[in-house]
């Protein structure tokens, strides 16, 4: 028998702990990505000459480079300049920034899809620009892109495994540690994979359903 069920059962609690860390990273990273992405999207949309271009490059660059290298940069370079944080905090910020480049694009498409008449009506009512964004444009833009954001959230959940490379002790790192301590990798890695699947598959089904429900709006 290749698969050792008893061993598998004995390591499950440990792996579930790892899963909980992964979930925490994802939730915290999501908050950063959602807020930062929104800020970036609005700045890019406002077409301030130099600033917009700077943020365009930001999006291009972050999307064009690997998460692993971004994590290494934060983990190895920052301490040289007196900025040290825990691996977990570093990992959360890195993955949040990484995904902000994607959410910024998502928001942009949402903002773009708000009909020009909405801007005009807001102006005709003399709403100041801030209220126009927060009260009129963004509520509509964000609503239409919630499923897309949901997909990125799930993607982030899976991508967070990369942070094990900078010693963040999440699900995959737990599995690896168990593997090297017991010289058995099959069970921990398989269970880790199944746990990822167990969360992400139902989650993406939910996003699909949400997508169908939100579709007829507007």
């Amino acid at each position: 028998m290749i698969w050792d069920s008893e061993f598998a059962l004995s390591i499950l609690p440990d792996l579930l702990q790892g899963l909980w860390v992964t979930v925490q990273i994802t939730l915290a990273g999501t908050v950063i990505a959602m807020i930062l992405g929104l800020v970036v999207a609005v700045i890019r949309f406002s077409r301030l000459p130099v600033v917009s271009q700077l943020f365009n490059f930001y999006v291009q660059f972050v999307r064009g480079t690997p998460l692993l290298i971004q994590a290494y940069c934060a983990f190895f370079i920052l301490p040289n300049y007196g900025l040290s944080f825990s691996p977990m905090a570093t990992g959360i910020v890195v993955i949040g920034i990484n995904y902000s480049a994607y959410t910024a694009e998502v928001y942009r498409s949402g903002i773009h899809d708000v009909p020009p008449g909405q801007w005009e009506a807001a102006k005709a009512l003399n709403l100041p620009i801030g209220a126009t964004w927060t009260r009129i444009i963004l509520p509509q833009a964000v609503r239409s892109v919630i499923p897309l954001l949901g997909n990125y959230l799930i993607q982030m959940f899976k991508d967070s495994a990369v942070l094990s490379a900078i010693t963040v002790f999440e699900l995959l790192a737990h599995a690896q540690a168990i593997g090297s301590n017991n010289f058995r990798y099959l069970e921990p890695l398989t269970i880790a994979g199944l746990l990822f699947l167990l969360v992400s598959y139902p989650a993406s089904q939910m996003v699909r359903r949400l997508e169908r429900r939100l579709a007829p709006a507007h």
Partner: peptide, 21 residues
């Protein structure tokens, strides 16, 4: 084309500018 705010009720549409502006 009316350009009402679709995510607000009729009352909220009318109320928005007087309270904000």
């Amino acid at each position: 084309q009316f350009n009402l705010f679709p995510h607000m009720t009729a009352l909220e549409n009318v109320l928005e500018a007087p309270t904000r502006v």
